[in-house]
Computed example of a mutant assay.
Amino acid sequence: MKEIIAILRMNMMNKTKRALADAGIPSMSAREALGRGKGLVDFKVLDGAEKGYEEAIAQLGQSHRLIPKRMLLTVVPDKLVEKVVKTIIKTNQTGKAGDGKIFVMPTLDAIRIRTGESGDEVLDEG
């Protein structure tokens, strides 16, 4: 089983939830997140700040704010990872900077508290 974490534009969250539910993946968690990608970083200014130049440090403080995002989390059996990833990409891909990121990580186990069941049985089967 794998945990899939997607960082998405805030205005794409409802569309993504619907697309995943239509794909048979209704179970997920979401939370607010703040972040930015490398596309918004001026590496010359960053390099100057790392070297201790006060002008560069001041410029970093004035720009490149963190952007409000949504973090979507779901855990699925290995056989559904590709389906989930493709659904998220299809729903969120605009071709512009800021479309988001997807992270796929191994998960050792999942346990349903109500029944004590564990493993893939407690996950969506899509």
Score class of each variant (00 low, 15 high):
Lys69Thr: 01
Gly100Leu: 09
Val41Ser: 02
Gly39Ala: 04
Gly24Met: 09
Lys86Arg: 15
Ser29Trp: 03
Val45Cys: 08
Ala19Gly: 06
Thr74Val: 12
Arg114Phe: 02
Lys51Phe: 01
Arg65Leu: 05
Arg70Gln: 09
Glu82Leu: 05
Asp47Gln: 13
Asp78Phe: 00
Ala33Leu: 13
Gly119Ser: 06
Glu32Tyr: 13
Met1Phe: 00
Val81Trp: 07
Ala21His: 10
Ala23Gln: 10
Thr115Pro: 02
Val104Glu: 04
Ile25His: 07
Gly126Tyr: 08
Gly48Thr: 10
Ala56His: 00
Ser63Phe: 05
Glu32Lys: 15
Ile4Pro: 00
Lys90Tyr: 03
Glu32Gln: 15
Thr91Asn: 08
Asp78Val: 06
Ala21Asn: 12
Lys90Gln: 15
Leu60Cys: 14
Met10Thr: 15
Glu54Gln: 14
Ala33Asn: 07
Ala58Val: 08
Lys17Ala: 14
Val81Ser: 10
Pro26Thr: 12
Ala110Phe: 05
His64Asn: 08
Glu82Ser: 11
Leu66Asn: 03
Val81Phe: 08
Ala97Ser: 13
Leu72Trp: 04
Asn11Glu: 15
Ala19Asn: 09
Glu50Trp: 11
Gly24Ser: 10
Ser27Asp: 04
Thr115Asp: 02
Glu54Gly: 01
Lys83Pro: 01
Phe103Arg: 08
Gly35Gln: 05
Thr115Leu: 02
Asp78Thr: 09
Gly100Pro: 06
Ser27His: 04
Thr107Ala: 13
Arg114Ala: 12
Met28Pro: 01
Gly126Arg: 06
Val85Glu: 06
Ile102Pro: 06
Gly39Asp: 13
Glu54Thr: 15
Pro68Ile: 01
Leu8Ala: 01
Ala23Glu: 14
Leu66Ser: 02
Asn11Thr: 11
Arg31Gln: 09
Leu8Pro: 02
Lys96Asn: 14
Ala49Trp: 01
Ser118Asp: 05
Arg114Gln: 07
Arg65Glu: 02
Asn11Pro: 00
Ser63Thr: 15
Val81Lys: 09
Pro26Asn: 11
Glu82Lys: 12
Gly61Pro: 00
Leu8Cys: 01
Arg114Met: 04
Asp22Arg: 13
Asn11Cys: 01
Ala30Trp: 08
Ile5Gln: 12
Pro106His: 11
Leu73Met: 15
Lys38Leu: 08
Gly126Thr: 10
Ala110Leu: 05
Arg36Asp: 02
Glu55Arg: 07
Ile25Gly: 07
Lys86Tyr: 06
Asp109Leu: 04
Ala33Ser: 14
Glu125Tyr: 03
Arg65His: 11
Met10Arg: 15
Met13Gln: 06
Gly100Ala: 07
Ile113His: 08
Phe43Lys: 08
Ser29Thr: 14
Leu20Trp: 10
Met71His: 03
Gly119Cys: 09
Arg114Val: 08
Arg31Leu: 06
Val84Glu: 05
Thr16Lys: 10
Lys96Cys: 07
Gln59His: 02
Arg65Cys: 01
Asp99Lys: 04
Asp124Glu: 12
Arg65Asn: 04
Glu117Val: 13
Arg65Met: 01
Arg18Met: 09
Gly61Val: 00
Asp109Pro: 05
Thr115Phe: 01
Arg112Trp: 03
Asn14Ala: 14
Ala23Thr: 13
Gly119Trp: 03
Ala6Gly: 03
Ser29Ala: 10
Met28Asp: 03
Arg31Cys: 11
Lys79Gly: 03
Phe103Met: 12
Leu123Phe: 09
Val84Leu: 03
Val45Gln: 05
Leu46Arg: 14
Leu66Phe: 07
Asp47Ala: 14
Lys2Val: 00
Thr94Gly: 05
Lys83His: 11
